[in-house]
């Protein structure tokens, strides 16, 4: 079972990224839970969600330490880096997280997700770009399988945009380059 936290500014699509990951995991036969950060949140404040993905019943949807952190901004790194388990994974949006000294006992994948999404003229696709890096780095699913899942997810919502797949694949490719 993998515990993942996705965090960033409200509006960066962190909750959506988590939901897409949850949805495709479910389609691929995994058990999942998705819990949003919940409280009297401020607009523009930090948003986060926690996912657990596994092959057997997810007992507890909550956790205090995680195997992977998807950090869309600097605040997400500050808030959650210390909760990543030893040898765990941090996917960091390096467009937003600059000059940060990460812990030495974790694996860090830095992806300029906001820049990649902007260069593809899909600025709201930074979250999808981060998902690409997450799938490539965790090897939860084959990259092509997940890319098809993203197409299906948006098609079902009537918002088919081939640039989302493009963002996803660029994010995945960025991991190979690291």
């Amino acid at each position: 079972m993998l515990s993942i936290t996705c965090a960033g500014f409200g509006g960066q699509g962190v909750l959506t990224a988590g939901l897409i990951l949850a949805h495709i995991s479910m389609i691929e036969g995994k058990r999942i839970t998705w819990v949003p950060s919940y409280g009297s949140e401020m607009r523009g404040g930090t948003a986060s969600c926690r996912l657990r993905i596994g092959d057997s019943e997810i007992l507890n949807p909550f956790f205090t330490t995680m195997g992977a952190l998807v950090a869309m901004n600097h605040d997400a790194v500050t808030r959650f880096e210390h909760s990543v388990v030893k040898n765990g994974l941090v996917i960091s949006n390096s467009t937003m997280v600059k000059d940060h000294a990460f812990r030495g006992d974790i694996r860090v994948v830095e992806v300029p997700a906001t820049d990649i999404a902007a260069s593809l003229k899909n600025p709201r696709g930074a979250n999808i770009t981060m998902l690409g890096a997450t799938i490539a780095a965790t090897r939860l699913f084959p990259v092509e399988t997940f890319a098809d899942g993203i197409d299906a997810y948006f098609a079902k919502k009537g918002r088919n945009n081939p640039l989302n797949r493009e963002c996803f694949l660029r994010g995945a490719a960025a991991v190979a380059e690291v």
């Binding site: 939901l19 949850a22 479910m26 058990r31 999942i32 839970t33 998705w34 819990v35 949003p36 919940y38 997810i58 949807p61 909550f62």
Partner: peptide, 10 residues
């Protein structure tokens, strides 16, 4: 409760 109400599961 708020947790069960807000969480997402299959």
């Amino acid at each position: 409760d708020a947790s069960i109400a807000q969480m997402v599961e299959p």
